[in-house]
Design a protein around this nucleic acid. Structure first.
Length: 780
DNA sequence: TTCAACCACTT
DNA sequence: ACCCTTGGTTGAA
């Protein structure tokens, strides 16, 4: 028996998305996708109508070859009926910048052309293909000078075919209006792919739908969508669970589900895929895009999760990637698209596949070039009044300033324009594509940050989301430069950037030392320095001087009241870059690399470490810090007691790790591998790049499967491996306090005194009381 | 004790 | 649709 709570919102009944006749209006470009030889263009008119228009579009691509090789290809293309050769034109070669003669071919059928294209290089190995594998939506935007959510002046005929469409704003505007979008939120829960409950929310009204017949559920959902006509369907896990579940429900009861505005012939159920990105394996569930609406799955959208709705829109406008597509892609896709757009604007031929072999390097060259960023190991332990200086967007700023780009590195024309330290050269004559794209992004981000300072709270949040989106673009642009299969990547360019960065950091260090600062730690683009009696004004002056001498802008991140650089766990004498925690005035903590920052640390351990740091953050100097240590230890012991009384809940004990391969491929029986196999055994599929979550039951149990219990099999009262979790907890405590002599054995001993030698300046009476009861639990 | 396998983190 | 920075944990030899 299904029951919707009454939907209080006034209903909108939309009859049709077809235009009634020829018209000229102002409106926003909502979405585009191909339909054979035209793009379907969805617009939101100024008066709020949602309209489906058509724009005939035959994206051009280019081929280059000698006439005798070209003739059979032209015949082949003509016979296919999928494209039409149009004539000769001159375009710029990406690598040399020279004009070359190429044949322009128009794609007639965007849906079937890609499959045909794939077979061509094998049959015509001597022909070069350019601009042929661009995404149709993006290509349409590049060629028309349009972008998602552009405010446009447009005109169409009585059939709804666009006669003209002209943008009235620019992606580079700092202020822009987007139309009010109708957002419907769908959440659901269930088991496997069985949907057990469904919630629909819109404009603050919520409906919960449980225990209904599938027919009713689909019927009512269809009605709600029809009546409210959302532009955006926002889900949590729509791709991985909700949409597949809804679609299979709809299939079973044979009621079509009407999530799209456009007619959808058939929705192909695809397999998810595992892919490698930034040093780790990721799993992408198949996505369920909508036609005429956007489906945005917050759980499966990196950009939405990191930069919010505003960041997503900002990036879509700049990168010219349709919003719904961008939502499911990485920021790397955005930066690549901006490069493609720039290439198309400038008549530069876009190579189909990257085909530049890396120049051979001697062993010595390799050693020098691959050093990457420069690191000065930190001086171990506790430091008072340390200033942190950070270069702003150092790598992208270097690329922009020194013209580092795949086609400018080791060019033919400037053999003596050397990069510091390594043998590479950089072109002086021609500006590279990468710097050309980065420069305005750097500039726009700077402007947003300036605007933020003079804005009110809610505007500031919008601006912040936008500048965060730009920040991610800048960050990945460097990674893409060295990434072998990036379209505009080349490892030598990557090496040139790190070479410059080392020079800059070295120079910054020298400036600091000249001015009497002591370097506590430095890494890539950040320095930690201190000097007796230094004032903020001195530090700002220091920043100005470094900026002047290096040509790179450096800023004062802040002055820590205290900071602790923690040693290596394997060797207490050895410092480790990037493992520290410190406190700024007011008690704001900053910490890197320690347990609390790791994604695979159980909640209870992270909470304990955070609570200890919070206690320590009340200290403003060395003396207060030492005074706070017993309090921090109290915190630690309270967590230990909780743990050893068996009160910890499974969600506090969960360990989540990401699989890099399929469960059966693991050769070791560590808890994660056992957990992965346990998922499979109980019918849950886990792919490389997906994560597994488990609780340690007894890590010593001879039966492997009893060592851990994975999340879906957990119930409320799971007995857990107290000893193991205690060890994690104490190690997290040790990380914070080892510099003050609190080693793991000491911590163990002070919390649970062993009978004979008493711990140094042992606990207060109340501590002893606790310790006794703890020992009982631990050892009985 | 040492080793190999494996994951996560920093910029 | 990577090749290797570092630290740390784990199980097993």
């Amino acid at each position: 028996m299904g029951e919707w709570k009454p939907w209080k919102r006034k209903s909108i009944i939309t009859m049709s998305y077809r235009p009634k006749g020829a018209e000229r209006v102002k409106g926003w470009l909502f979405d585009v996708y191909p339909a054979k030889g035209a793009m379907v263009v969805w617009v939101i008119s100024e008066d709020g109508r949602r309209l489906r228009l058509l724009d005939p579009f035959n994206p051009p691509f280019y081929v280059q070859a000698r006439p005798q090789e070209l003739r059979p290809l032209i015949r082949d293309i003509n016979k296919s009926g999928l494209a039409t050769p149009q004539g000769w034109t001159k375009k710029k070669d990406f690598w040399t910048g020279e004009l070359v003669e190429v044949l322009q071919v128009a794609i007639e059928d965007m849906e079937r052309f890609p499959a045909y294209l794939k077979g061509l290089p094998r049959r015509y190995p001597k022909v070069h293909f350019y601009n042929c594998d661009l995404h149709p939506g993006q290509h349409y935007f590049y060629e028309r000078g349009l972008f998602p959510l552009a405010c446009c002046d447009m005109e169409w005929d009585e059939r709804g075919v666009l006669k003209s469409i002209t943008p009235l704003d620019s992606p580079w505007d700092l202020e822009y209006k987007i139309p009010p979008l109708r957002i419907m939120e769908l959440t659901g829960s269930g088991r496997g792919f069985r949907l057990l409950s469904l919630q629909v929310r819109m404009d603050g009204y919520g409906l919960s739908f449980e225990q209904a017949s599938p027919q009713e559920a689909i019927h009512d959902l269809n009605r709600l969508i029809r009546e409210n006509d959302p532009d955006v369907v926002l889900t949590s896990g729509g791709d991985s669970f909700l949409f597949p579940a809804l679609l299979s429900l709809a299939r079973n009861c044979e009621i079509p589900i009407e999530l799209d505005r456009d007619r959808v012939e058939h929705r192909i159920a695809r397999e998810g895929r595992s892919l490698f990105s930034y040093g780790r394996v990721l799993y992408m569930t198949p996505d369920y895009p909508l036609f005429g609406r956007w489906h945005i799955d917050r759980e499966n959208s990196f950009i939405y999760a990191e930069c919010g709705f505003e960041g997503l829109i900002e990036l879509a406008r700049l990168s010219k990637i349709p919003v719904q597509r961008l939502a499911r892609r990485s920021t790397g896709t955005a930066i690549t698209s901006m490069q493609l757009d720039k290439a198309v604007q400038e008549g530069i031929l876009v190579p189909w596949k990257k085909a530049v072999p890396e120049k051979w390097k001697s062993g010595l060259e390799l050693l020098i070039a691959d050093k990457g960023g420069l690191v000065y190991q930190p001086i171990l332990g506790f430091h008072e009044k340390v200033a942190e200086l950070d270069f702003a967007s150092m790598y992208p700023a270097i690329m922009a300033k020194f013209n580092v780009s795949p086609e400018t590195v080791n060019c033919e024309c400037c053999p003596d324009a050397f990069v510091p330290e390594i043998g590479h050269t950089i072109c002086r004559r021609r500006e590279g594509l990468v710097p050309k794209v980065l420069r305005p992004i750097l500039e726009k981000r700077k402007r947003y940050k300036e605007l933020m300072r003079q804005s009110k709270e809610d505007t500031r949040e919008i601006l912040n989301q936008r500048q965060t989106a730009l920040k991610w673009c800048l960050v990945v642009s460097f990674g893409f430069l060295g990434y072998r299969n990036a379209r505009f990547g080349r490892i030598e360019a990557h090496e040139a950037v790190t070479a410059y960065s080392r020079e800059k950091l070295l120079l910054a260090k020298e400036v600091c030392e000249e001015k009497g600062y002591r370097i506590i730690h430095a890494i890539v683009d950040a320095l930690w320095v201190k000097k007796e009696g230094v004032r903020e004004a001195d530090l700002l002056e220091l920043c100005r001087e470094i900026s002047r001498r290096t040509g790179q802008s450096i800023g004062l991140e802040g002055v820590y009241d205290w900071i602790v650089f923690v040693p290596s766990r394997l060797n207490a004498e050895v410092p480790v870059a990037n493992r520290y925690f410190g406190s700024f005035p007011g008690g704001r903590l900053k910490f890197r690399g320690i347990e609390a920052r790791r994604g695979d640390t159980p909640h209870i351990v992270r909470d304990a470490q955070l609570a200890m740091m919070h206690e320590l953050s009340k200290a403003r100097d060395a003396r207060e810090f030492e005074e706070r240590v017993p309090k921090a230890l109290d915190v630690l012991s309270s967590y230990a007691i909780y743990l050893l009384e068996g009160r910890a809940r499974p969600e506090e004990l969960l360990i989540t790790r990401t699989l890099s391969k399929a469960p059966e491929e693991y050769e070791r029986n560590d808890p994660m591998a056992i957990a992965a196999r346990q998922y499979i055994k109980h019918g849950f599929r886990v792919h490389p790049g997906e994560s597994v979550s488990y609780v340690l039951l007894d890590t010593k149990d001879p039966s492997l499967d009893d060592r851990v219990r994975v999340l879906p099999l957990l119930d409320g009262n799971t007995a857990y491996d107290q000893e193991k979790y205690l060890e994690y907890l104490l190690k997290a405590g040790e990380t914070l306090l080892s510099q003050l002599g609190y080693s793991l054995p000491y911590l163990k001993n002070s919390l649970f005194p062993s009978p004979s030698p008493s711990p140094p300046n042992g606990g207060e009476d109340q501590d002893k009381g606790q310790s006794l009861s703890l020992r009982k639990i631990l050892f009985v």
